[in-house]
Amino acid sequence: MPYVSRSAGGAIDGLYEQLQGGVAEEFLPDDDPELGTFRDTSPEVFSVSARQFRLMLRRTGLLDQVKAWVAQQDGETQDAFEYSGTFVKNSPMMTAGFKAMGFTAQQIDEFFTAASQL
């Protein structure tokens, strides 16, 4: 099933069709010199299941460090970490947590992409 990728401003910046293994086929716009071709690209991952997120924390050796950070946060953050079914990359809790861990934007993207494959 095709899906549209949009920039932060809402402009369409890509049209994709999901393929097996999390790879997407990108269809190029009519004015593109490579018309009729496509390039393989991995779609950006915006969220992962709680299971995927926690497994990735464990595999990267960060689970205990993250649990310690969460224990120092307010009750809502603690509840969100403990009971959420999905972890959304750009949520305030994720932003604060990754900042506290010293992650760059690229490292966050890589973390979510890897977690999405578990």
Rank of each mutant, 00 (worst) to 15 (best):
S49C: 05
S7P: 00
A8E: 09
I108Q: 02
S84K: 04
R59G: 15
A100K: 10
G102E: 12
A50M: 03
L15P: 04
D64G: 06
L57K: 06
F98W: 06
A68R: 15
G102R: 09
D64M: 11
P43Y: 02
E44M: 12
A80I: 06
G102S: 08
D79Q: 09
V45E: 05
D74K: 08
G10K: 00
F27E: 13
E26M: 15
G75N: 11
Q106D: 13
L35Q: 11
E76A: 07
S116P: 05
S5Y: 03
D32C: 05
Q78G: 06
D40A: 15
S84D: 03
Q78M: 08
F112M: 01
E110V: 01
G85T: 12
Y83R: 12
R54G: 07
G10N: 09
D13P: 12
E26C: 14
E44G: 14
F53E: 01
G9H: 08
R58T: 14
K99L: 10
Q52S: 08
Y3D: 06
G97Q: 03
E17G: 11
I12C: 08
M1N: 13
Y16A: 09
I12H: 12
Q73D: 10
V4M: 02
L118K: 08
V70Q: 07
E44Q: 14
A115L: 01
M101D: 00
Q72W: 03
